[in-house]
């Protein structure tokens, strides 16, 4: 039988030095997590489809491995950990003292073309910080991520920090259909000013709105970017997003971590469950981000418990592609 010897697309086997390297990497990162009092949680590899489908965004929802059990329930293999951690906290751990600090590592499964060092089955390592004070917890999560990178010998890295509320506030009053909005988002994501211009003309947006969206493409840089953004908008939601970002920036500067930060308000891609800050982690020499994270204040509500949360995850295969010092 052919299926006995060939491998399904998107799977991988590790052995030899690769296993040693990966286990050492996990252990070093987990050392940092436990130093910050993050407790490991091992969630199931599958759960009901609905647990994952809420708030993931259409693109990832399509990537879910779905199946039906004998009773006819629709199930899915986990494509990420955050939903499972959120569900567990909301249903089992809600009475624990806050903030709850949890960490995890394990496989996630996504039905997508193997690309960028990521197979259909890939490995994630991350933390969730639930129910704490906003800016302090955002800063803590970012600090943990930075310390973990340094612990494995990566000293040069860049955290691109954005705020979902800024763009949401901007387009809220445009009255665009979901389809038009996703087209605008896609053009901003491509950083394509010409395409954006054409689309805005098609939608007959006012000159002021065009100017604002156009400026959004270039809202990337140091802390002055926040001031530049403030001059651009008047709506309350965007302004409060900027206040939040400025607060976090100041807190990270106080912790002497601001050197690694780039403010990036042009980042409009991310899981739909993110509500506040989002960040992506870049390391020079690697063409893909090695991790990402953000705040998801509405996710736990889905599971019947209203707690604000923030977290991040590393994409392990991508970290492994870097020259690490695993001592």
């Amino acid at each position: 039988m052919k299926t006995l010897t060939q491998v399904p697309l998107g799977t991988q086997v590790l052995f030899g030095p690769a296993v040693k390297r990966r286990r050492r990497l996990e252990r070093l990162v987990f050392n940092i997590f436990s130093r910050w009092k993050y407790e490991e949680i091992i969630p199931p590899i599958f759960d009901y489809y609905d647990v994952f489908s809420r708030g993931m965004g259409a693109e990832l929802e399509e990537a879910l491995y779905r199946f039906v059990d004998r009773e006819g329930n629709l199930l899915a293999l986990r494509p990420e950990f955050t939903s499972l951690v959120a569900k567990t906290v909301a249903t089992r751990l809600q009475d624990r003292p806050k903030p709850l600090r949890l960490c995890y590592c394990g496989d996630v499964l996504r039905y997508e073309a193997p690309r960028g060092g990521r197979q259909r089955e890939s490995f994630q390592l991350g933390i969730e910080n639930i129910g704490g004070e906003r800016i302090a917890c955002d800063a803590e999560v970012i600090q943990v991520a930075m310390e973990a990178l340094q612990r494995v010998g990566i000293d040069r890295f860049q955290f691109n920090l954005g705020e979902m509320g800024f763009f949401a506030g901007l387009v809220e009053r445009f009255g665009l259909s979901a389809q038009d909005l996703s087209r605008i988002r896609r053009l901003i994501d491509l950083k394509d000013p010409v395409g954006l211009q054409a689309e805005m003309e098609r939608l007959q947006l006012s000159p002021r709105r065009r100017e604002v969206l156009h400026a959004l493409l270039h809202l990337t840089g140091n802390s002055e970017t926040i001031d530049a953004a403030r001059r651009l908008v008047r709506n309350e939601k965007s302004l409060s997003a900027l206040d939040n970002l400025a607060g976090l920036y100041a807190e990270l500067r106080r912790r002497k971590l601001a050197d690694h930060l780039t403010i990036d308000l042009s980042e409009v891609r991310g899981l739909d469950y993110y509500t506040g800050i989002i960040f992506k982690i870049y390391v020079p020499g690697l063409g893909f981000e090695v991790g990402s994270g953000g705040r998801y204040d509405n996710l736990l509500k889905n599971f019947g418990c209203d707690l604000p949360s923030v977290g991040f995850t590393f994409f392990l295969e991508r970290l492994m592609a870097l020259p690490l010092k695993l001592r």
């Binding site: 840089g221 780039t262 990036d264 992506k280 870049y282 390391v283 020079p284 690697l286």
Partner: peptide, 11 residues
């Protein structure tokens, strides 16, 4: 066209 990470790291 520009690589997503290069766009950020070599901005």
């Amino acid at each position: 066209i520009v690589n997503r990470a290069s766009y950020q790291v070599k901005r």
